[in-house]
Design a protein around this nucleic acid. Structure first.
Lengths: 235, 235
DNA sequence: TGATTTTCTGACCGCATGGCCAGAATTTAA
DNA sequence: TTAAATTCTGGCCATGCGGTCAGAAAATCA
């Protein structure tokens, strides 16, 4: 019955309703991660949850709301687990490193969520046929990145570049990293993240002063190369 | 009637059939670019082309073949227009610049094709529900990139890095560039391409003559990973 | 010209989907 | 215990899809 979001002021959600919503969302995530968005029908999700199809309609306004709630839940969780660790890091290059590795580490423990989120982003469309998510959804991701880049540029830590382009490129590298790993479970995500960190640190840092030594990282804190690379089936 | 590909040896394709196939493919591209894959039904495509739905079934084995043919046609065109200009460029960093700007320039003149291709990649699935295209489809793109990177590493022009990760990241930056531009027509694609070029040139070039060059390691010469037939085109 | 093949039309089919609902089952309240 | 509210079931529905088909129309051939 309850279907709209509950801005805290509404009637409390009953215990059963809370549990059911969580259960359904879990089943939906697993189903989508397993068979893809296109095949994740309400019937299939319900079957996986061991309930009747109507229950979903009862607890959610529709498939759309169910998907939106999943996205919110996953995003919230990511934010709590990743963004938190960035406080206290003053160097922007270090921030890039920390963010990259942390988000990778988080995803390693949440493959289903990652896959489901990707599927929803790519496939969910409203009644009008327009996608719910897309490039524009990344705006909240770009903003903080741009802020950090700009700060680094002002402090002289970073060279001059277009912060928006850099934010887009960096975010896309992360997305591609996850995409590749999602497709290729053996892939060493951690090593990949290290490489991406290096890549972008070099891309953003200020030119090395002519004679002063650059602050590059010594090779000792570099990780091992991806021990398990992929080379796709085709070719 | 003719539906399979024509390996040149088969009966000639009639004038009408050739024209119709082209017309239908054009209409499909326009329709997909305009309303997205999900809403680009055969009926809608036919309506746009001003023909009956059955004509599509008559000239193509099914929606799947139609989409595949579109992808082939667009890819072929891109290959002819972009890849060609890379001969004679010896420096790998220069190659990155040229490739980036050329492909951007090409896309500026083919927005519909770009959008349609993206939609097809993301959405086309076979009867079994598995995506036809996805990250693994990028393999033909990664290979030449990796080759170039490796060459640059061997010549000392480029620093040591994982060529596969770099190829993935670079390609994703291009994809994101087009995605952003597709969403945001006012965006200065050319300037964006310049920035991406700078970004990756800095990321790949050898260190200033600081340390002795390190041995490279690329994922290429390691074992073979499963292309993970699983599913889901997260991308 | 008439005969034959190619091309096209518009109606139709089976299927899967998301959503709906009447009523049954269960929980909560009195 | 009884009454009321909540929760759940299973079947039903309209929709839109890709694909098929018999026959009309058009092009080609003789």
């Amino acid at each position: 019955m309850r279907s709209e979001n509950q801005p805290v002021s509404q009637k409390e959600r009953s215990f059963i309703e809370t549990a059911r919503r969580a259960q359904i969302m879990d089943a939906a995530v697993e189903t989508i991660a397993e068979v893809g968005f296109a095949r994740a029908s309400l019937a299939r999700i319900a079957r996986r949850a061991g309930i009747s199809k109507g229950v979903i309609s009862y607890h959610f306004a529709g498939k759309e709301e169910l998907m939106e709630q999943i996205v919110i839940a996953v995003y919230t969780d990511i934010g709590e687990n990743v963004a938190g660790g960035l406080h206290g890091v003053e160097s922007v290059t270090e921030m890039v490193r920390v963010n990259t590795t942390r988000v990778a580490e988080y995803m390693r423990g949440h493959r289903s969520s990652l896959r489901a989120l990707g599927e929803i982003f790519l496939n969910l469309r409203g009644a009008d046929g327009e996608p719910h998510y897309g490039m524009h959804t990344n705006e909240p991701l770009y903003q903080p990145l741009e802020d950090a880049f700009r700060r680094g540029q002002e402090s002289g830590e970073l060279r001059d570049f277009d912060t928006r382009v850099m934010a887009i490129s960096y975010q896309s590298a992360l997305d591609a990293m996850f995409g590749y790993w999602a497709l290729n479970p053996e892939w060493d995500l951690t090593a990949h993240a290290e490489q991406v960190s290096d890549l972008f640190v070099r891309a953003i840092r200020a030119e090395a002063p002519r004679d002063a030594p650059t602050p590059h990282r010594s090779s000792r804190d570099r990780h091992d190369p991806p021990p398990d690379p992929a080379e796709g089936g085709t070719a």
